[in-house]
């Protein structure tokens, strides 16, 4: 057993180490992703069947996800549990989030994806997530009027009070439409990716021409009006 554990840990370590390398990870940096990798333990209870969707976890008779000891996993107990499984599929998002301020300030997946996650099991969370995910992305992007403000407050404004205040006043973020009428409020996630909220860098448009680059060219595109009538 000891030999197996050793082999497993070595493998896990190697896995994390290599997968982290191209992302510019320093091996010394202890991130949540690393911690999770180390937490992965094999099953010891033979009554459980390994979960197909959640490698490393098991499904008990009731269809609830459990750990190797058969304990039902609740989000309130292990807030990083999502990453454990979704790391592979959403590596980019997870890595970006892990580097972001949201990670440092412990704004975890369930904050947005899980809705009210206190005490809910993974199965419940999964169902919740499906609706919530839709709720955020679609409702937030499509909503109009006061609903937008509510959503912006619920998801972002609770922490970012100052930004929310400015945004509501139209000073932070973008607004389009009419300065004296109907405006479209650009909700937070239209500009900020919640997994990596820092505003993205982008490619600038070309620089203006220098005065000595503005030169006389023999007229070729000169458009002379009224060609038809020859006036």
């Amino acid at each position: 057993m000891i030999a197996f554990r050793f082999a497993y840990l070595s493998f896990a370590f190697l896995l994390v180490f290599t997968s982290a390398l191209p992302c510019g990870y320093s091996a010394a940096e202890s991130s949540i992703v690393d911690e999770i990798a180390e937490e992965q333990l094999p099953a010891s209870d033979d009554n459980l069947t390994p979960s197909k969707d959640h490698p490393g976890l098991f499904v008990n008779g009731q269809g609830e996800l459990v750990d190797d000891l058969g304990t039902i996993i609740r989000l309130s107990e292990n807030k990083n549990i999502c990453i454990k499984c979704h790391y592979g599929k959403h590596e980019k998002i997870v890595v970006a989030w892990d580097k972001s301020k949201h990670s440092r300030k412990k704004v975890l997946c369930i904050k947005c994806h899980g809705g009210n996650s206190e005490g809910s099991t993974l199965k419940e969370a999964k169902d919740e997530t499906k609706t919530n995910f839709k709720h955020i992305k679609e409702s937030m992007l499509k909503a109009t009027g006061d609903v937008v403000k509510e959503l912006a407050f619920d998801y972002c404004g609770q922490c970012h009070g100052d930004k929310y205040r400015d945004w509501e006043a139209g000073i932070h973020g973008k607004r389009t439409g009419f300065w004296n009428g109907e405006k479209e409020y650009w909700v937070c996630i239209r500009c900020h990716d919640p997994h990596n909220p820092k505003f993205k860098k982008r490619v600038p448009k070309p620089r203006p021409l220098k005065p000595d680059e503005i030169v006389f060219k023999k007229p070729q595109n000169v458009v002379v009006k009224n060609i038809k009538s020859g006036k």
């Binding site: 932070h172 973020g173 973008k174 607004r175 389009t176 439409g177 009419f178 300065w179 004296n180 009428g181 650009w186 500009c191 505003f199 982008r202």
Partner: peptide
Amino acid sequence: NGRYPACAEVCPAG
């Protein structure tokens, strides 16, 4: 006509 100027509408940073 009540609309925002073009530069204000296009600014990605708001």
